[in-house]
Design a protein around this nucleic acid. Structure first.
Length: 592
RNA sequence: GGGGGCGUAGCUCAGAUUGGUUAGAGCGCAUGCCUGUCACGCAUGAGGUCGCGGGUUCGAUCCCCGUCGUCCCCGCCA
């Protein structure tokens, strides 16, 4: 596309252009002034192109070149020429050609940059403060380019399947459950607030009631919770909902989508992906997002320990607890200090203690717990662990949730530490059959694992009243290399089942009316069976670009304290603004 | 809310085993020289509230306390 200021992109030029006129515009990336000749690399989004000024060839151009400084914006016009054979730069896409411009214009000058572009060691806070400069670096350009390609491939894929992209509101009513809402005060309605959506959940279900049948949206979502490397206060989901579907339909559709998204990143993957039940994931990997690129699977020794004389374990078991173990290979040489560190790690992860068996290289076996076990039990442990010389088996006894969590984290810790993870793998799988409810000790009641509209497994419907803790749901997560990429569920479309689900959650009629009235009401007017899922776009792109943080795939992210270091948001509001919003501050904001 | 790391030149860092007279390096920047560089080379030079405040001390970049900034983790969050 020819523009007023440029007719070609830098890397569009090739040897085919030799002798032809070109007009480039971009930034002076590097300037090499050799005294009698000046080389400048022009950079635009496409890449680099070298232009040369020689006083004997064009004194006027040479004079302007002498004025150039780093990151000046320039335009050059002239004929593309071949470089002398011995000056070809193999590292540059356009390294065999160059231009002695007939004309150069300085379109804009630049101050000295606060940091050297492409210097990977520059700290992130400096780069975030001058994000517009960081964006000039190849890394950010590549990340944003890949993000765009992935979004494009997703849109193309869903469009080809007859989906409609529909926007849902950003100013909505606050929702009682889930994450903390961002609130927006209403000027028109004194004392009332909008919330920003944590996800378009309610609206996408209403779109199904509205007959849209197949909906998607590249949706901005907002959660006012503390940040992490993979969590931003505003983030983007590929949000999808479909009518007249069961779980398999969603899974199949998503597998195609993920395949296309990976293809856009140059990675070929072949659906269908493995499916593993939530229970199996917890039993084998201690996680609902298992990284199955390596072994170190957990195993159950509750039955053995139950018949031991180890009162600590027996006490846990009699209270409904479990004893599980993990075998870590080739660490029997660990010193006492190493073992203390491991024990402290277990405690940090939530264990009350740690027991172990060491299978020494000399064939002896050492364990602080063996005095509580008979020979048969000791043998059975070795058999289940398939322990060999050099291994250590660790035991954790507690309520299942704690045991899974501690051993699951142990597994990841040692997998990383012992370098057991094949980083070249693209391991995709589905975790299915999640429990519908989870007991919350904090609230002393059962709460939704997914959300209150998740369909219970058909075979578990009669347990809704009798055995809440064991009701499975039709919910599914997609997991990539041990990271949750997305998840979703089939929703309840039957008013009677929805009432039973609400009841199981301990919600009263008033609660339901207050919290979900318009949704429940909508469902009374003919609701198609429906379900969907959402995929975290930022995480997906971060994983595919091997970025350490999702900040690296967002053009203008917040820092770990939810501040925008560039614009210094959030800022203070004026007294006038506060008055219009009917607000008074409890504390004066800190001014730095 | 809690735990940990870091904070010295524009950027990235060093600054000792023990607190001491003039706080260094590379990159960048400036000036000069240099006609085929592409990490151009060579020379010269400028550039510092050692994050901030307080304390200990004859004396603090260094030790102590507080505070601010930033990153990571737990809690929180799908």
């Amino acid at each position: 596309m020819e523009l007023a200021y440029k007719k070609q992109n830098c890397t569009q030029l090739s040897e085919e252009y030799i002798g032809k006129e070109a007009v480039l515009a971009g930034w002076a990336a590097t300037i090499r002034d050799l005294g009698g000749i000046i080389f400048v690399e022009v950079r635009d989004r496409s890449g680099l192109f070298q232009v040369v000024a020689d006083p004997k060839i064009n004194p006027q151009v040479y004079e302007t070149f002498q004025k150039l400084k780093s990151e000046y914006v320039i335009q050059v016009k002239g004929k593309v020429s071949k470089r002398p054979d011995d000056t070809i730069n193999e590292k540059l896409l356009t390294g065999s050609i160059e231009m002695y411009p007939d004309e150069i214009k300085i379109l804009s000058s630049s101050k000295t940059l606060p940091f050297v572009l492409e210097d990977e060691t520059v700290s992130e806070d400096i780069r975030l403060k001058y994000r517009y400069l960081d964006l000039r670096c190849e890394r950010m350009l590549n990340n944003l380019t890949l993000r765009h390609k992935i979004v494009t491939s997703v849109r193309n894929y869903l469009n080809s399947l007859d989906f409609l992209e529909v926007e849902t509101p950003i100013l909505i009513k606050t929702t009682p459950e889930g994450a903390r809402d961002y609130l927006v005060p209403s000027r028109v309605h004194d004392g009332k607030f909008y919330a920003l959506p944590q996800s378009p959940q309610v609206f996408k279900q209403l779109l199904m009631v509205g007959g849209i049948e197949k909906y998607y949206q590249i949706a901005k979502c907002f959660r006012d919770e503390d940040l992490r490397a993979d969590r931003q206060p505003e983030f983007t989901q590929i949000d999808i909902e479909m009518s007249f579907v069961e779980q398999d339909d969603i899974i199949k559709m998503t597998e195609g989508l993920v395949k296309e998204a990976f293809k856009a990143a140059g990675v070929e993957i072949q659906p269908p992906f493995k499916r593993i039940s939530w229970q199996e994931a917890m039993d084998r990997f201690g996680s609902d997002k298992p990284d199955t690129r390596f072994g170190l699977e957990l195993f159950d020794v509750t039955d053995i320990m139950e018949n031991s004389t180890f009162e600590a374990f027996k006490g846990v078991i009699s209270k409904g607890g479990t004893v599980r173990a993990i075998k870590i290979p080739n660490i029997a040489h660990y010193s006492r200090k190493d073992m203390d560190d491991v024990r402290n790690l277990a405690i940090k992860f939530g264990a009350k203690g740690l027991a172990w068996v060491t299978y020494m290289q000399d064939g002896t076996v050492k364990s602080p717990v063996f005095k509580f076990l008979n020979e048969e039990q000791i043998e059975e442990i070795q058999k289940r662990a398939q322990a060999e010389k050099g291994d250590i088996v660790f035991f954790v006894a507690d309520m299942p949730k704690v045991v899974y969590d501690v051993l699951g984290r142990f597994r990841l810790y040692f997998g990383e530490k012992l370098n057991l993870i094949d980083k070249s793998k693209h391991d995709l799988l589905w975790v299915v059959d999640f429990p519908l409810f989870e007991y919350s000790a904090e609230d002393d009641r059962f709460v939704s694992v997914h959300h209150p509209f998740t369909m219970p497994a058909y075979e578990d419907l009669d347990k809704l009243e009798t055995d809440k803790g064991h009701v499975k749901s039709i919910a599914y997560d997609i997991v990539y290399n041990g990271c949750e990429l997305g998840g979703g569920s089939i929703r309840i479309h039957d008013a009677a089942i929805q009432q039973r689900a609400f009841k199981a959650l301990g919600l009263t009629e008033e609660d339901i009316k207050e919290k979900f009235e318009f949704l429940v009401q909508a469902f009374e007017y003919g609701t198609p069976p429906h379900g969907g899922l959402a995929i975290g776009l930022d995480r997906l792109v971060a994983l595919l670009t091997r970025s350490e943080s999702i900040r690296d795939v967002i053009a203008f992210p917040k820092n770990s304290q939810a501040k925008d270091l560039m614009s210094d948001a959030p800022g203070v509001a004026s007294e006038q603004q506060l008055r219009e919003l009917h607000l008074r501050l409890r504390n004066q904001p800190k001014v730095n």
